[in-house]
Structure formats: structure tokens, C-alpha cells
Computed example of a mutant assay.
Amino acid sequence: MDISVVIPLYNEVESLPELTQWIRQVMQKNAYSYEIILIDDGSNDGSWEKIEELQQEHEQIKAIKFRRNYGKSAALNVGFNAVNGDVVITMDADLQDSPDEIPVLYRRIKEEKLDLISGWKKKRYDPLSKTIPTKLFNAATRSMSGIYNLHDFNCGLKAYRKEVVKNIEVYGEMHRYIPVIAKWAGFNKIEEQVVEHRARKYGTTKFGFSRFINGFLDLLSIFFVGKFGKRPMHFFGTMGVLSFFFGSIMALWIIGEKLYHIAMHTPYQREVTEQPMFYIALVAVVVGAQLFLTGFVAELVSRSSVNRNQYQIEKEI
């Protein structure tokens, strides 16, 4: 099979007939073999009933329904597990992504042998309350991930080699950072494609302020797990040793200063415990010891994990 189109949806009953028909026309025009996998993320507006109707007239449609709303990441992860196509295309169900982009994405994955292509909605129709925070998040993600050639990590329209989606796990709000997850998994051939952003035709946006906070926390999680997941002592141990070292130096400096004054029989104005630096040093020593112990415990947990020696293997002969 050439292409699998994965579409997570939540309360998009109005757009589904137009979207699936549009995809069908594009696929038939280019003679692609394909499947459309619709993941209903707990819709309550009749979306599932509409999907059942569409499936009767469109045999390429497959569908999965969640009992409740789990979020886009969960929907994508389940969809990735179900795909069969050589190239996997993801898009939103609200008609803001154009199926006409599919042929160029497919050709680039095949001809340029890319792992992932992320869409870039260069011209957007979203309000400033959404576009400005998105730009800030994209800048932070570029800086932390080292993927400097992407402008829009969160674009729903993406294309993948099948091997990529079968070797990554998406959860929480991490669908925003799939290129980062793919890179940490060893898939480094990541490029960008300028795509059309269409104004929403039906329904309302599912975007909320809480996604900013969740997205930022997930970015930190990806950064930490990707870099230190198999060696947590390198992170916690380093921080702990540095904190303990500087705390000890400050404490020794204060004590040494008092001993110097005693030896020289010169007046010493304040007691050791009356100096703020003493308490800063004490806190640094205690925090350093705790960080080191945290790293030690995390290392034990990591070594006990069933996944401790699972690594991405590209080829084997």
C-alpha cells in the first residue's frame, strides 16, 4: 500500500464527508493505493455515526473510536499502530489542512528518502492569541532540540516513512513535538514543506490556554528523557556534585575565615551562624546530596527497566 492517511478527530461531523471525498479524489487522480484511518477521540456530536455511513460507500476508510476524549497524541499513537502504508500522512479533520498537499509530500519522502516532512503554514488564519504563543514555542523547541530548519513543529499536516511511526511513541501533548521524538529515536532526515492553511469552515477550535502549559512541560520531558533517559545519574549526579561542591567551598571559606581571625587574635564581628552565606552553603550541600541520591535511585530504576537495552536498529545483515 502506498499511503495511509491518519486523521484524529473530535466533534467534526460536518467536515467528514467533504474531507474524505476530497482525499478520495486526490488518491484516484494520482492512482495511489491508500487507506484512511479515522480516530474518533470521544466525539459526542454524531461523528461516529457519520463515519459508519461513510465507510459503507468508501471501503478504504477504517475507523477507531475511543470511549472518551484522550487527546490528539493518544489518537495519533493508536493510528500509527494501525497503519499499513509505506508513507503515512497525518492531517486534522477540520479542513484547515488541504489533501492536495499529499502528492508532493509523498514524492518527497520517496525521492529524497526522507524520514519526516513537517508542514509549515507560512500564512495563517489563526488569531494573534494563538499565533504569537505558537511562535514562541517553536523558537524554544528549535533551540532545545537542535532542529533549526523547522518553523512549525505543531502543524498537523506531516508525512512520515512507515518505519518512523512504528518506532516512536506519542503521549500527553507530545504530538506537538513529533519531529523531536523522531530525532531522539535516530531519524534525522527531517525537512519542511510550505503548505496551505485554510480558514476553518465548520465547528469551533479545540485550542485552549491549558495546552500552552502542558506543551511546555512535555517539551521539558522530551528533552530530559531523550538525552538522559538511559543515564539519569549524568544529569542528577552532575547537578548534585556541583551544588555540594560549591556549598562545601562556601562553608569552608566561612569557617576558615573565623579560624584565621582566632589564630591572628583579631576581632571577628559575627558568628558563623549569623552569616547568610552559611545558610546558603548549608542549603547547597543538602540539595546537592539529595540530587545525587535522586540520580542514584533513578539509575537503579533505569537499570531495572525491561527497556534498558532496547535501541533503534536501522539495518541488520
Rank of each mutant, 00 (worst) to 15 (best):
T238I: 12
T238D: 01
T238M: 12
T238N: 09
G240Y: 09
G240R: 03
G240H: 02
G240V: 03
V241M: 11
F244N: 00
F244E: 03
F244H: 06
F245W: 10
F245V: 14
F245Y: 14
F245G: 12
F246V: 13
F246R: 00
F246G: 01
G247K: 08
S248Q: 05
S248C: 05
S248K: 03
S248D: 01
S248F: 15
I249N: 00
I249S: 05
I249Y: 09
I249D: 03
I249R: 02
M250P: 05
M250V: 13
M250N: 03
M250W: 10
L252S: 04
W253I: 10
W253M: 14
I254H: 06
I254A: 05
I254S: 00
I255W: 06
G256L: 06
E257H: 08
E257I: 06
K258T: 06
K258R: 11
K258M: 08
K258W: 09
L259Q: 06
L259C: 04
L259H: 04
L259P: 00
Y260S: 07
Y260T: 10
Y260D: 04
H261D: 04
H261K: 07
H261T: 03
H261M: 03
H261N: 04
I262P: 02
A263W: 07
A263L: 11
A263E: 06
M264G: 01
H265M: 05
H265K: 11
H265Q: 08
H265E: 02
T266V: 11
T266P: 00
P267L: 00
P267M: 04
P267T: 06
P267E: 05
Y268K: 00
Q269H: 14
Q269L: 15
R270M: 12
R270E: 12
R270L: 15
R270I: 12
E271S: 08
E271T: 11
E271Y: 12
E271A: 10
V272G: 07
V272H: 08
T273W: 10
T273A: 01
T273M: 06
E274Y: 03
Q275H: 12
Q275R: 15
Q275W: 10
Q275L: 15
Q275A: 09
P276C: 08
P276V: 13
P276H: 14
M277Y: 10
M277F: 11
M277A: 15
F278N: 03
Y279H: 15
Y279L: 08
I280M: 14
I280C: 04
I280N: 04
A281Y: 01
L282C: 10
L282A: 13
V283Y: 15
V283I: 14
A284M: 15
A284N: 13
V285Q: 09
V285S: 02
V285M: 13
V285K: 07
V286H: 00
V286K: 01
V287F: 13
V287T: 08
V287C: 09
G288C: 02
A289H: 03
Q290G: 07
L291S: 05
L291H: 08
F292H: 07
L293E: 10
L293G: 03
T294K: 06
T294E: 08
T294G: 03
G295R: 02
F296N: 05
A298P: 09
A298Q: 10
A298E: 13
L300Q: 12
L300D: 04
L300E: 12
L300K: 14
V301M: 14
V301E: 12
V301S: 13
V301Y: 10
S302D: 13
S302N: 10
S302G: 15
S302C: 14
S302K: 11
S302I: 02
S304E: 07
S304V: 01
S304M: 01
S304Q: 05
